[in-house]
Design a protein around this nucleic acid. Structure first.
Lengths: 191, 191
DNA sequence: ACCTGAACACCGTTCAAGT
DNA sequence: ACCTGAACACCGTTCAAGT
C-alpha cells in the first residue's frame, strides 16, 4: 500500500461542500419544497445531520446556491469573445437569457436581497464584462448606466419568459430580439 | 332587534377570504418563513385550522397573494392619467418601481411560473394600459414589443434595486431616470 | 356551518454515541 | 473528525367534536 494508514485515523470527509451545493442546485429546480435537507443528503449519499458539518443551516445552503449560480453565470460570460463590442453585448444578453432558462428557480435568487458582502462582490464580478464592453460602446461616463439598463432588461425579460407572463409564449425569440435591438440600438448610434 | 335570529342558526363566517389574503400579504413582506398559517390565523383572530375553510392550502394562499398583488398594481396603474402618452408611460414605469419598493417580496411572485388561467388573465389586464399607451406612441404593429421591453426593464431594474445589486445604492434615482429616458427615447423619436 | 383542540406527518436541527 | 439514530421543536393539515 502506498499511503500509511491507521485505523484510528480520523475519518476523512466523504463529501465536499461543492457536491452538496451542486446537488442542492439541481433539487431546487424541482421546486422550493423539493429542496429538503434529507433530499440533499440522499443525493450525496449521506444522512441529513451530516450536512451540518458543511453548511450552517438551510438558509446558508440557499445562500451558497446563489453564490454558485452567480459564479456559474460569470464563467459563461467570460467564455464569450466576439470581435466587435456590440456583438459581445448581444452575446452576453443571449447568454443570460439561456442561463435563466436553464436555471429558472436558481436564477431567481440572483436579485434576492443580499446582505452578505461576498455575494455583492460576486455580483459585481459577474457584471464586470458587461460594464467593460459598454464602456467601449458609449464611453466611460455612461458605461455603468448602460450596463444596468441592459442587465435589468435582459433579466426582466427572461423572468417574464419563464413565468410565461403576458402570453409571451407565441414568439418569444422574436420578442427578445426586438428588445435586444432596441436596447443595443441606444448604445450604438447609427452612423 | 331588527333582524330575526335563532340560536340554532349556522354560525356566519367571522372572517372573509380577502382579510386572510390581506394579512398574508403583510406577513410575507417580513420574509417567506414569517408566512405561517398560524401567524395568518392569529392576525385575523382565528385558529389555523379555520383558514382551511377559506383557502385550500398554503400554496393556494400564496397564489391568492399573487393575484391580489396583481390587482393592487393594476388599480394603481388605472389611476394614472397624464395628458401626453409619453408622460403616461413614464408615470407607469415610476409607479411599478414604487410598487415593487413597497411590496418587494410580494412583487417577486408576479413573474413566478403561473399555470392558473385566471392569473394569466389578471397579468394581461395589468399590462393593458401600458400596451394601449405604447400603441399611441409607436403604432399597433410594435406596441406589444415596446410594452414588453419597457415592462421587462422596469421590473428588472426594480428587482435589482431591491436586491441592492451591483452597488446600485448610491444614485438609484439617477440610474432609473437614465434607463427610463433611454427606453422611452426609443418610442418617441426626436422630431 | 363555522370554529376548535387534539392528533399526525414531515422537515429542520441538535446531540450523544458510534467508528 | 466525520457520521449516524434518536430526539425535539415547529409547521401544515385533517378530523371529530363543539356551538
Amino acid at each position: 500500500m502506498s499511503i500509511a494508514y491507521s485505523g484510528a485515523m480520523p475519518a476523512p470527509s466523504r463529501i465536499h461542500r461543492d457536491q452538496v451545493v451542486a446537488a442542492a442546485r439541481v433539487l431546487l429546480e424541482r421546486g422550493d419544497s423539493a429542496l429538503t435537507m434529507q433530499a440533499v443528503a440522499r443525493e450525496v449519499g449521506v444522512r441529513a445531520p451530516s450536512l451540518y458539518k458543511h453548511v450552517r443551516d438551510r438558509d446558508d445552503l440557499v445562500g451558497l446556491i446563489r453564490d454558485a449560480t452567480i459564479v456559474d453565470l460569470t464563467e459563461g460570460m467570460l467564455e464569450i469573445d466576439a470581435p466587435s463590442a456590440s456583438d459581445r453585448i448581444i452575446a452576453y444578453a443571449r447568454h443570460v437569457r439561456a442561463f435563466v432558462a436553464r436555471w429558472p428557480l436558481g436564477s431567481q435568487l440572483l436579485f434576492q436581497r443580499a446582505d452578505a458582502h461576498s455575494t455583492r462582490d460576486l455580483l459585481q464580478r459577474a457584471a464586470a464584462p458587461v460594464v467593460r464592453t459598454c464602456a467601449e460602446l458609449v464611453g466611460h461616463p455612461h458605461a455603468l448606466d448602460a450596463a444596468r439598463t441592459l442587465t435589468a432588461w435582459v433579466y426582466g425579460f427572461s423572468r417574464m419568459e419563464q413565468a410565461d407572463a403576458f402570453n409571451l409564449g407565441h414568439d418569444t425569440d422574436r420578442a427578445f430580439e426586438f428588445g435586444l435591438k432596441t436596447i443595443v440600438g441606444t448604445m450604438t448610434p447609427t452612423r
